[in-house]
Design a binder for these strands. Sequence first.
DNA 1: ATCAATTAGGTTACCGGTAACGTAACTTTC
DNA 2: GAAAGTTACGTTACCGGTAACCTAATTGAT
Lengths: 339, 339
Amino acid sequence: MAIEKSKRGGATLAEVAAAAGVSKMTASRVLRNAPGFSNQTRDKVMLEVQRLGYVPNRIAAAFGSDQTSTLVGVCVPRLTSDLFGSVLDSIDHTLSKFGYQTMIGTHEQSPEVEETWLRAILAWRPAGVILSGRTHTRGTIEILRAQSIPVVEVWNLNTSPLDVSVGFNHYDCGHEMGSFVLSKGYENIAYVGAETNAEGMGKVRRQGFEKALQNAKREFLTKEILTDRPSFYAGYYGTENVLNRTNDVDAIYYQDDTMAVGGLFYCKSKGLNVADDIGIAGWGGMEIASVLPERLTTTIVTTRALGKAAAEALVARVRNEPVQDVTVATTRLVPGNTI
Amino acid sequence: MAIEKSKRGGATLAEVAAAAGVSKMTASRVLRNAPGFSNQTRDKVMLEVQRLGYVPNRIAAAFGSDQTSTLVGVCVPRLTSDLFGSVLDSIDHTLSKFGYQTMIGTHEQSPEVEETWLRAILAWRPAGVILSGRTHTRGTIEILRAQSIPVVEVWNLNTSPLDVSVGFNHYDCGHEMGSFVLSKGYENIAYVGAETNAEGMGKVRRQGFEKALQNAKREFLTKEILTDRPSFYAGYYGTENVLNRTNDVDAIYYQDDTMAVGGLFYCKSKGLNVADDIGIAGWGGMEIASVLPERLTTTIVTTRALGKAAAEALVARVRNEPVQDVTVATTRLVPGNTI
DNA sequence: ATCAATTAGGTTACCGGTAACGTAACTTTC
DNA sequence: GAAAGTTACGTTACCGGTAACCTAATTGAT
């Protein structure tokens, strides 16, 4: 049974008000729980709302009020990632708890795609936007400034954010892991990552790691950065490339845990003894690690807390409440037995 | 540098029109590429659009036209799943190509949560909604019917859909896998799954599998259905429970590949010889399988094609073009060496 | 050359709420 | 007990586009 499309919707607020014997304005106040009506009036109005099956019209509401909606635009690199998925899920849950609706977009690390998305989203006069790009185009920055709209930059920690930033300190994550790997006696360390359109935060972690190497008068023996999105297979393949290139590598730092796990399986398939023959370190604390025989050395990140903090910061900005400019979400290096 | 919030936005269409020396209506026609203007006029208008940095106001547009927006609501079980993430990503890409914006929600298999989400979304007068719930509340069905809005039910194949259905035939997936596992000589088969609020489509696959067992005068030796969302560890733990319960099991059918992989690692950790001692079959064709030493026997599903088909079906419904009521997305049993 | 069809515009009214303001009845305060 | 709030409404105007309708000029066909 197909439902036919009809332009005319259901009851309007005016009809509800008329049926309840009050003015449109009073009915509006009841529905928004704005002050200025009695309990008796509320009951009358709500009865008619029920009886007529009134569905509020947020388009008209957004139009008629202050020209901003309860929509929030959220743009993440991609949806097929447990990490970003978890952040987005947490953002959406938190926002909806505050009465906002989430409009999504993906940019695959391309600032240009982010700008295109932003232009489309701004036409909806969102209450605010949450971005996750590492860098933004000049156009993105200009239109955000012109629209003077609350912006939360999430995922990466931006010390001079457009507006508010909630993120992980990727540099420190890399640096801490670099120091840790070195402290375990590894000397010839490679990096394996994957980037599609532009550099994501994996690069920053790599730079942090490199800094730790520099402090020990060392550098990456080799770097393998595939033109691909991070995945198990990308880690597998990248490791194959690295190990075919040189036999001297004794440890690999991976862009994230999916790639690390892929690399782990490549090493095992070649009969290498993980940790002894080759050390493996990842980032992200992904769930797969919980079932592997090896305990993966990685950095656990609090994605749900990050999403919640980002959404709460945005709501606070929208409400003109004081907000901390920069919030660091916690990360924790967890030594396993792969390093 | 924080951006201050201001209520007054930028230029309006009237200002653009005045600057270009035409009427509002003509400017509107240019921007929507509606017929009725000359090239010369378009150039004049577009010049002012650029110069004034005009951002179209879709809220006003939706309000002033036919009371439906270019918003589409999409509600999936959860965002932390490669499978659902991939479907959502594909839906979003396809919709945005057609000029629609995606508003998301998650229901965690709870029809009541889906209804709550739907009520909030309908206030935005979306062009249509895409649902993924296996069942809907009476309220959901009633308000969808009352609003007479295009609805695409996705993921599961619904032979009597509310409106349009695009999905996998989960029952056949299960039945096919059941027949396959039996054909390989396995006799004492267990099922391991995970459900949170309510039964998802895993149950339907299980029923299909059970039908195949019944045809061979058999049944599941035991079923382990955890109160959890499917995950690697849930599969690991569920397998532990099953194998602790009985020694007779010679194969396990899992709700999906994440659980199957978790189970695979449990079996290996106990020194079991996969395929010989215990067969393992999953569903979903998830990427992790590409790096495992074992080739997982599973059913590959075309999530991107599913999302694209669902979005295209929705757009066609919105445009009142003919749409097939029920579309089956392809699935393919891929024999590996774990069965 | 004349009439019909097409093209390029303009005019008017309206969508469904909400902000701002006004007002009458009731309550509190000194 | 009168002035000063407070409460519970109603009235008016307006948000920024678009549909529907109308007009004048141009083009095409017979």
